[in-house]
Write a protein that binds this DNA or RNA. Structure first.
Lengths: 351, 351
DNA sequence: GTTAGCACTCGGCAGGCGAGAGTGCTAACA
DNA sequence: TGTTAGCACTCTCGCCTGCCGAGTGCTAAC
């Protein structure tokens, strides 16, 4: 696509801004008045005709105003907004809020997704960061007596995954005895994968066998954890958008977010290797049918190439891309930072 | 309120059923035709006038059909549906699904809320069961090395609560050393509450002090856990109801469920001491303003009087009460059963 | 290159109208 | 006494119609 003239670009920008905030097709006259342009509406009309020929805007019907097309938004995102950053004051406010919260992953995710939704006025989503390696192996586990018949098993894998589960056993076992069992089993199973434990577990008897079975089961859960779990916030923003106000569309977006449909539609098109870099998908640019009516601003976060999560914003195609991109970029960077410390370095207290 | 005649009761039942399924005001003629009543529409009209005088139904406007009032639904729930039970085949199907899932609380809650939503065609909610005792005390904890600077702390309280958190420490500590530390600290802190640990922690140094601080923090979190956390499912059902289809109402219900507003509005009016017994709140019967437009069917579940959770259904006033009450009662019983075994007895495998 | 003017298009809205559903009342009937 | 048929009346809803205004493209003049 060839580059537009400066005036055309500014015009496109104005059309998009106006359409985003007023959510109805924008006409030449209204545009001139509202922004006090130094041209008459007729001139604007000529330019608009040009933009329409270029496929960047179109009219829903004759004698209506113009509405940006997907390519129009694309041009805007590529050429007209540069690399938006959050204002320093906003960055400070966000960092401040993160300092208030417990230094734990769930808290960070919860806070990030909430702030992002509030900041962009749209639905925002975040996934847990996941290691990319595929076969989980035992690093260490502990057994803790909870109640008469209930034992807690805590498993840590070599990839720093943590998993806990409850064992039920027919008789009470003292904590000291649990320790003996866990010591021998730890020695035996250290470094093994689910399949390898299965081979050994047949030789085990009694509680040891139950432990082996549980370990194997948990490891397999980690292995099969293709389903990154998705958290979202700000759903109410989307429901207030006229695009999704009808019961039909509202139901669709809720289902999309609720049952994993969103992730499985989104994942194939996300480049996992552009850390902290924001990717934008506008309407028909989405490969999955289910996403055709949305605009998506998403980034990966994590540590180097080892653990990767997603964080981003989901909204109607008519979305404040500039602000969204800035916010998502900042949030992804912040989350990468936090997860990095969390996985690899010392205390978070002094910031 | 005085009792109605048999025919009036049947009529009320029909009106409610018809209104629930067809969701528009029901008229005398349509009723006679649809259910092939052995009376003419004129007779039905007379009876309807009587029901209206009793305040059980009313007309939205002259020459419209009749719509049940809150008192109408109340009469229906009290006198016309008895003690609905789920069909045995449905019970079996549900139990079967529970057998497929990991024997853990989160899994059960997730499954229960999903099934309940599907079964009733409405939004369903569930909270974690919480012990009613107020001060948490250490029973046992373990320290597990995760990575160079990261240690996992798993805490079990005397009330069988489990809490985990990550510690960051400036140097690597071998698992064996962690065990030494945890042994001495366990001996020292066993049976203590947050406040009591705070007193001792000043004498501690090094890692022991960090552990003490963390333990105290986690215990306080358990103490202050007034905010039962709420899970919900089936939101899409509500959004498809015409009552909530507008963006306005849709936004309200999402916010209600999303930020704790629902629980804080509901809790004051729920009787906590009627275990497994279903409570119904219809429209204006709800004490909180925010709930006036909803019908709520809710039950407590848990173990004796010690741990109590909520499970139930939220929908428009026009809600299938009979089916909802049956489903909620069954689910609450099932959850009580599961939680009971989980906290107090042996294996769940054989059902 | 810009602008004023003009004829034209079309969505949205208000108003009028008729159909249909529903009601209460009255009088007749079993 | 309870039930029913008939009737006059009311009100909503959907449909049509005509008008208003916003917006457009084109042309001619500056």
């Amino acid at each position: 696509m060839q580059r537009l003239t400066l005036r055309q670009e500014q015009l496109l920008r104005l059309i998009i801004h106006e359409y985003i905030s007023a959510r109805k097709a924008v006409g030449s006259k209204a545009l001139v008045e509202h922004y006090q342009l130094p041209f008459s509406s007729a001139t604007i009309r000529n330019e608009m005709a040009e933009l329409e020929r270029a496929g960047l805007i179109n009219q829903p019907h004759t004698s209506a105003g113009r509405v940006p097309t997907d390519s129009g938004y694309r041009y805007y995102v590529e050429h007209l907004i540069g690399e938006p950053r959050l204002a320093p004051s906003e960055q400070m406010m966000i960092r401040h809020q993160f300092r208030q919260v417990e230094a734990q992953l769930e808290g960070w995710m919860q806070l990030a997704v909430t702030l992002l939704a509030r900041n962009t006025g749209n639905v925002s989503v975040v996934t847990t960061p996941r290691a990319k390696v595929s076969v989980a192996r035992v690093k260490h586990f502990e057994l803790i007596s909870i109640q008469e018949h209930v034992i807690l098993l805590v498993l840590v894998t070599q990839e720093s995954g943590v998993k806990q589960s409850f064992l039920h056993w027919h008789e009470e076992v003292a904590q000291a005895d649990l320790r003996l069992i866990s010591d021998t089993c730890n020695a035996r199973f250290k470094g093994l994968s689910a399949a390898e434990i299965d081979l050994l577990s047949e030789d085990e008897t009694g509680l040891g066998r139950l432990v082996a079975e549980q370990l194997s089961e948990r490891l397999r859960e980690l292995d099969n954890a293709t389903s990154l779990d998705l958290q979202h916030a700000g759903l109410e923003h989307a429901l207030l958008q006229p695009e999704f106000a009808g019961g039909q569309a509202a139901g669709e977006i809720v289902e999309l977010l609720g049952n994993g449909g969103f992730l499985s539609a989104l994942l194939p098109q996300v480049q996992p290797d552009s850390p902290d870099d924001v990717q934008v998908f506008i309407g028909s640019e989405n490969s999955a049918d289910a996403l055709q009516q949305y605009g998506i601003v998403i980034a990966t976060y994590g540590v180097r190439r080892e653990v990767i999560g997603l964080i981003g914003v989901l909204g109607p195609r008519r979305m404040p891309y500039e602000r969204s991109i800035g916010s998502v970029r900042y949030m992804a960077g912040l989350m990468s930072d936090l997860v990095g410390r969390f996985y690899y370095t010392g205390d978070y207290a002094e910031e």
